[in-house]
Nucleic acid binder design. Structure first.
Lengths: 145, 145
DNA sequence: TTATACTCTACTAACTTTATAGAATTTATA
DNA sequence: TATAAATTCTATAAAGTTAGTAGAGTATAA
């Protein structure tokens, strides 16, 4: 399961994606339309800004906007930012590698190759799904009505 | 990432798998050979027993043994037992379904279909990997020496 | 009868998650 | 230039989770 932070971030990014080319979108608007506690969302948007996924402008008429294209922000990117490694064990993580405390010998670890396969499976599907995927699903849904 | 419980459980199950047909294996032996805190492992093996993956016998000469075939115990099974849902969000979980607090309308949820695809990707690779996979990797490794 | 090994429940310290609070800063505009 | 709007930043806190530890109880073989 992903954290609420990751989930809220994906919803906020999708909301911003719908606004592309239409200027700034305020935190308060996103919070209300996506059912996210406003002060919590402020923190999340700030983290997304520091990760260069969004940018912002202060003051009246200010707000947030997507810094990257929707297809360039994946679920994997957001998950890594708020939840860390996608891999099941730290010793096979590409972005958050750490030695396992209980492993006597990593080279001869029987589980490592299998955990790498699992990581690749999860990584593939999470990288393939982007903010654009959510936007496409949104378009399809409104077309049906 | 998976919890230490899941990881220890997979190591213990693989250890038991190597012992198939050779009688009972004691907690103390598994704990030492896999570098797992013994009292913690006791809890884990008990949970595996309640989940009908292993069985045991008390008293002198007693211990644990696999109740299922190694290929019938998957990483997905163990993950679900100790860490819960494989899905990224509760509303697309097959085994741990829950409504999302922040979702206004599940039917029209833009993210749902994509999260189902991610769940299926993760589920496939985690179901395909079993204790037998680890045993096979172990055999290959010792054959190379 | 005794030693061995699993069984079960309770507890706890450390950490993480999910927020909330409030002061500071920037910006547009009246 | 004063003011309101909006982001920025840091601190704090309650609740829940994780990773164990402790110890008494039960079953079994010799």
């Amino acid at each position: 399961m992903m954290s609420m932070k990751s989930k809220y971030a994906l919803k906020a990014l999708t909301c911003l994606g719908k606004n592309t080319g239409k200027g700034y979108m305020q935190t308060a608007f996103i919070a209300e339309s996506e059912n996210i506690p406003k002060k919590f969302l402020e923190q999340i948007l700030l983290e997304l800004k520091h990760a260069h996924m969004v940018s912002s402008k202060q003051g009246i008429g200010g707000g947030y906007y997507l810094l990257k294209k929707p297809k360039e922000i994946s679920v994997a990117d957001v998950y890594r930012l708020f939840d860390g490694a996608i891999a099941l064990v730290p010793c096979v993580s590409l972005n958050f590698y750490e030695k396992c405390d209980d492993c006597k010998n990593e080279i001869s670890c029987v589980m490592r190759d299998e955990f790498i396969k699992i990581r690749e499976g999860a990584r593939l599907v999470m990288s393939k799904t982007t903010i654009q995927s959510f936007l496409n699903a949104s378009k399809k849904l409104s077309a049906k009505k």
